[in-house]
Design a protein around this nucleic acid. Sequence first.
DNA 1: TATGAATGAGTGTTCATTCAT
DNA 2: AATGAATGAACACTCATTCAT
Lengths: 214, 214, 214, 214
Amino acid sequence: MLPVGEPKFRRRKADRPDEIVEAALQVFAAKGFAAARLDDIAARAGVSKGALYLYFATKEEIFRAVVELAIAPNLKGVLAMVAAHPGPFADLVAQFTARMAEVVENSPVGRVAKMVIGEAQNFPALAGVWHDELVAPALGAVAGAIAAAQARGEVRPGDPRAYALSLVGPMLLGAIWRETFVPVGAEPFDLSGLARQHAQAILTGMLTNESRAA
Amino acid sequence: MLPVGEPKFRRRKADRPDEIVEAALQVFAAKGFAAARLDDIAARAGVSKGALYLYFATKEEIFRAVVELAIAPNLKGVLAMVAAHPGPFADLVAQFTARMAEVVENSPVGRVAKMVIGEAQNFPALAGVWHDELVAPALGAVAGAIAAAQARGEVRPGDPRAYALSLVGPMLLGAIWRETFVPVGAEPFDLSGLARQHAQAILTGMLTNESRAA
Amino acid sequence: MLPVGEPKFRRRKADRPDEIVEAALQVFAAKGFAAARLDDIAARAGVSKGALYLYFATKEEIFRAVVELAIAPNLKGVLAMVAAHPGPFADLVAQFTARMAEVVENSPVGRVAKMVIGEAQNFPALAGVWHDELVAPALGAVAGAIAAAQARGEVRPGDPRAYALSLVGPMLLGAIWRETFVPVGAEPFDLSGLARQHAQAILTGMLTNESRAA
Amino acid sequence: MLPVGEPKFRRRKADRPDEIVEAALQVFAAKGFAAARLDDIAARAGVSKGALYLYFATKEEIFRAVVELAIAPNLKGVLAMVAAHPGPFADLVAQFTARMAEVVENSPVGRVAKMVIGEAQNFPALAGVWHDELVAPALGAVAGAIAAAQARGEVRPGDPRAYALSLVGPMLLGAIWRETFVPVGAEPFDLSGLARQHAQAILTGMLTNESRAA
DNA sequence: TATGAATGAGTGTTCATTCAT
DNA sequence: AATGAATGAACACTCATTCAT
């Protein structure tokens, strides 16, 4: 009952960066990098504009932190799952696509991905981070699992990276669709249903006759 | 004493808007909407900055014209092909994916698409145009062809729109990959090869046993 | 009688840079480089802040233009006088000091010099310009004339550059005095009188007995 | 459980202001007033930025303290020497110029002087302090000694203040030269040599024929 | 039709100063 | 006495848009 009114200074250094990055995620996702105003980020984080510079040197650094925030917790787990999976390949694909649809549906990855794509020219460093830390490892892991399945005779011959794109492309496009076109009136996709249907179709085409029979 | 013989080959004024849009396409594609400067567009079009406003009311109008320019000639033809195709479905898919890979590889559609995605929040009108005039008709046409093939018993049951996404997703993702990650060192995809391999795989999964046997 | 009221655009490109530099001279002299605000310069020049950037790329460029403005017309003439002087040395000194006092008294050289001195650390480039284009040539010319007079037996042995400083030091210090201390209540110096008295005293000390007798 | 043995050699709090002023001298001399950052001063003094405000109300107050620090110990002694000197005038001048060259060479007076000159407009109070406490007394003392020598028939008639400027000008200009132009590549002066040569020349011009003969 | 000088609102960044601890 | 997180006003520079010519 004592502390009345908002104290002017909150003194919570440890929490601030996360609060700022969280606020920045909202603003960047809503406006894109260039159109996002530091004033807005500060206001949404409940700090002054100057306070931003206690934790980040430039606007671009804040963006980078947002990207890293979106990367780290969301997809590392999926990768581990893929890497560790023993087989058969059909099971992996079913689990993987379902998990991917879930992540896309419930995390800001889609919004951040859109930002990275949109700002790639002006901030190649960000595209680089996103590629090196997320996209390339993810694609590599999936391609690796495919190659292993090919070696086991489960999957037909063909470029494993291209197969990986065949596998994940529709879900990612669904995520972009949701962020880009649904707000202007497009009919949304049911990402989980899409994932299921696509997994079944693409699997049938990828598996060898023998493993398909199994 | 009067200025004599001044214009040698004065450009037709009727050409100006197209020249401007063409220049704007380059600049927007290189920088994105917000970072593109009207000065650059004017310089590249060989006109003064003020002249831009004789033909377009705002920067956004120029962007809109660019989007429309990129849409019209490039994809309308593909749509016509799809709409008119009699069957069998397998042939259509082979033709369609090959043509799509070609368009993506040789036209600025990929770059413009990236811009639209990136600026969708700030300029929903543009995402709307892109959706209404390109994406929705295209997806509809493909879904329609799929539905027809399902009716003919060529394609398995399932949501035709989702199947359409399964069909085009990997190629579009390949286009985004090229524009976004290849410049920062990612390994490029061979879009034509990807189209072929994907078409074969997804077709196998989509076709009914009967039609597959055929 | 027709043009009533101030037109919004004046369209006098040729005159603008000079007007801006003139205004900048006032403001820089009054505040120093760092404390001068571009708004003030623009307002005093009767243009918008943006217009400044049509003619100068940065604040520092404006400063540089001011420095060059103050250098060029004021002291080049003095140098020519010194370089061309045939002798005797005593006559040269009398003319030179008088002219120098006059320039210091009636031109902004003093104020600009003070700025250059004050900002030398932060903008070494400016000190460099001032040194290379004004101070070093001037000192060199005077030292050269002294060396020539020594060769003719008119002036006693000794370092010509140091003699040059002996010659000009008091007048320059008088200029600094006027700009720095007179505004806070210091008693001013009569620069012309100072020049005369100093010239006589230092000349006596510099001349050889023979030439002094002459 | 209480904090034990925390301070080893905690600095006496009484020393703090001096440490701050000493640090400020370095920073102000290196950057000038406006460009000096309180952060830098605090860091160099080994205290927090907030601690500065325990001892000084504003940045300007710190500057004032620096000026006073630089004034007091360095030139008061010279003045005393001048005031107390019995004569002959030639001896006084020799001693005085030598001592002045030494002070200028080995103390921060030159740098602080440059700051005062550069910031005089923005902080007239400082120019006032510098004038009232240093420059005016010094000039007065020298002028007084000259007047006394004139009364004794040692020095020719003429304005004693102007003679004083003739005496000290070159050395002060040498100090400014060192701080301003040597860092940008100018050839330095040997201040002691300059002082000797100048003293001899100006003395010859100032002394009466009788005293010169002596 | 065309120019391009001019505008002025907008924004990232800095930094002296304050204050809860 | 001392800290250092936080503030907020200030300012250089940009650029879409206007308009006299």
